[in-house]
Amino acid sequence: MSDSSTAADAIRERLVPFPQPHFLSAGDLNPFAAAQLLDLADAFVTLNRRSAKTLDLMRGRTVVNLFFENSTRTSSSFEIAAKRLGADVVTMPVQASSVAKGETLIDTAVTLNAMKPDVLVVRHGASGAADLLSQKVGCAVVNAGDGRHEHPTQALLDLLTLKRAFGEVGGLTVAICGDVAHSRVARSNVALLSMMGARVRLIGPPTLVPKDADRWGCEVFHDMREGLAGCDVVMMLRLQLERMEGAFVPSRREYFRFWGLDREKLAWAKPDAKVMHPGPMNRGVEIDSDVADDLSVSLIQDQVEMGVAARMAVLASLMERRA
């Protein structure tokens, strides 16, 4: 009882308004606001490890999870986060329809807006969809992934994971490896990690790393041995299976041979380097189970836990702004 109230007090002390009305991209944060959010999220981690986890910060509020793309882990992470804050949650899987996506999206937005939700969490296959939605509704919009553009809460949870593992993110060298070209996780992480003072490298076959990615403020490598040298963190990206069969890379086995993270390649990074993956993993393609399941190097399970806390921090902070 007293533990719970202590955790709740810590949360209330750290609660600050979100810097923007919506959370659409990592660029909506600034270093100061991000640090405050991490502090808040840290308190939620403590809360989440207690048996009584529910607060009333969002009592009476409605959160709608609007997922135009299938996602189990992200939608349940948001759902749990909102419920622990005391909100009413509706999760709506929306079948991707064959009609023009833009029109459907706006129609859906107008309909939902009439139901007066407080937060709309949206995932959509088209880049810019969350931004478009935010212009049409009166509530806060959280981007849970738009096409290959951004997935800002993933970057925030990755940042939280790193901060807890290393204490300080500034000065770390983080390698983001794999299908950078199609990855919203990569784009959000590049933005947020750079903002927080980490050095970011991108490693992947030239067909999967945009030619001008060096202008994102990252170093680009096509060779894992060169790219991983001196890295504190190796963040693997998921490779969509359909991109491997000769379109962007020739085969799974060639991808694994040159870019799949196994013990041998991990040894090229710093001795105590940590491994991350946003999930779901293609074991034996971009990451070897041997590495993924080794809790002494893998932060992958931590990332899932931090996901709930980071999203609680985002939702609570957005509500604080609207209070």
């Binding site: 069969e245 000769g246 379109a247 962007f248 020739p250 086995r253 041979r257």
Partner: peptide, 9 residues
């Protein structure tokens, strides 16, 4: 002429 072969291997 459609799908890339295993150039690296």
């Amino acid at each position: 002429g459609e799908r890339m072969a295993e150039l690296g291997l």
